[in-house]
Computed example of a mutant assay.
Amino acid sequence: MTLTVDLHHRFGDFTLDAEFEAPAGVTALFGRSGSGKSSVVNAVAGLLRPDRGRITLEDRVLLDTALGVMQPPHRRRMGYVFQDARLFPHLTVRQNLLYGRWFAPGRQGADPARIVALLGLDALLDRRPGTLSGGERQRVAIGRAILSNPRLLLMDEPLAALDEARKAEILPYLERLRDALGLPILYVSHSVAEVARLATTVVLMEAGRVLAAGPADAVMADARLAPALGLREAGALLSVRLVAQEADGLSRMETAGGPLWLPGVAAGPGSRLRLRILAQDVILATERPRGLSALNILSATVEQIHPGEGPGALVRLRVGDEVLLSRITKRSLLALDLQPGRPVFAILKTVAIAQENVGNRLLP
């Protein structure tokens, strides 16, 4: 199910001019605060009527200002999850969940028992929202939205109001829903870590416009987009296969550039995972290093070099069919005489990878 969006709207001094296509999976609208992400979601939901535009979901036209088509929100069949859960305080968790069911056409859709199990809500069903943690309330809000049997789930910064512990609690549940239900999701966030973990497609926005849109691994590894993504967050997504659990507690991964070792990955041999590797955690060498404590050294080839405005540069590396980014100084760039096509060795900090990928998702 593909969502197509073409919007133009003016808010005083701010102009939203966004066009993109969101295929099946989780499409993340990513960008800094004020970039227009929430306005796009509100237009998709039918809460904002743009000056002009067209929105379609598969073969259904939701909005076409040229033809005078504007489907009201309740006819669009969208599930909407906001930053705050917006649960009914006088109802139990069970009653809040079943309230969403009332809006499902013909009372059809996902099995409530299955959603309760996927979101880990079994022990909460008889409690009221005031007794729940922030993460628990958001899980109930997500369940309520899903049980309305939406054609598309809209999530506007659903984790923004939560602390890091609550975010870590709820992210695995979002992964379960994405992988188990196949429900298309439009997910708004300004967190690179969330996007890297959840998204299959990324739409990068800045000042009301779309800078880039495409598969998550391609957009996030595009060095030209690093200023918009944030230089400290610049990095790449690396697909790996878990080969074995070693006796010393390390998990051995297989990549096109050589083996990787990470501490205690909770998955079985043969599992495929996606690791997020920050550019600042990748050191380059023109010869294979010896006498280092670093375990993770991958063979790579320099693909592109993107000098920044300051003393740093981003080097895009090819590792088989995968891409890595390395952030080094221009002085190092000259000292190593790096050029496109030159073979190098990428040294990855094991601890940094492990911290970045605690609980990271399995690939389908």
Rank of each mutant, 00 (worst) to 15 (best):
L87T: 01
G106A: 01
L298D: 09
R151G: 06
D6F: 07
L153H: 08
L204M: 11
P340M: 15
G25P: 04
Q355Y: 05
G270W: 09
D281V: 01
Q304A: 04
D17R: 04
L324R: 07
A236W: 15
D51S: 01
V219R: 13
R241G: 00
V202G: 00
L16F: 10
H306G: 00
L225Y: 13
T286D: 11
P343S: 09
L153Q: 07
S189Y: 14
H74T: 03
D111C: 04
L362P: 02
V26L: 15
G308S: 08
N149F: 12
I283E: 15
G359M: 02
N296K: 09
G264R: 13
A104M: 05
L314F: 03
P307K: 13
G68I: 14
L62C: 01
N96T: 04
L119K: 00
N149L: 13
W102P: 00
P289N: 08
L63Q: 06
L183P: 04
L152R: 01
A199C: 08
G120R: 03
D17L: 07
A234S: 12
L260R: 03
H8I: 13
L338K: 05
A168M: 08
R94Q: 13
A180C: 08
R327F: 09
T201V: 01
I277T: 07
M220C: 09
G79C: 06
L152D: 04
F20D: 03
R209D: 02
T15C: 04
L183E: 14
S39R: 03
G257H: 00
F11M: 11
T350Y: 04
D248Y: 10
R54N: 04
V93D: 12
A218Y: 10
E233C: 03
E164V: 05
H8R: 05
A141M: 08
P269F: 01
L334M: 07
Q71T: 08
I297D: 07
E136S: 05
I328L: 03
T350W: 08
I297R: 08
L7I: 14
G258P: 06
E233Y: 08
Q339L: 14
V344C: 10
R127N: 00
L63D: 06
L284C: 02
A199T: 01
D13Q: 08
A256Q: 14
P259M: 12
D111A: 00
R114H: 13
L87F: 00
H190T: 04
F20K: 10
L275D: 11
H90M: 07
A22K: 10
D84T: 04
N96Y: 06
Y99T: 01
Q108L: 12
S191A: 10
A196Q: 01
G258K: 08
L338V: 12
L275G: 04
A161M: 12
I142H: 06
L333V: 00
V344W: 14
A236N: 11
G264T: 08
F14I: 06
G36C: 02
N149W: 15
L204A: 02
L325S: 00
G46E: 13
L97N: 03
R52D: 07
I297W: 13
H190G: 02
D222S: 01
L260G: 00
F345I: 09
A228Y: 09
M220L: 15
P129K: 05
L262N: 01
L97P: 00
I347W: 11
R60A: 09
V140D: 11
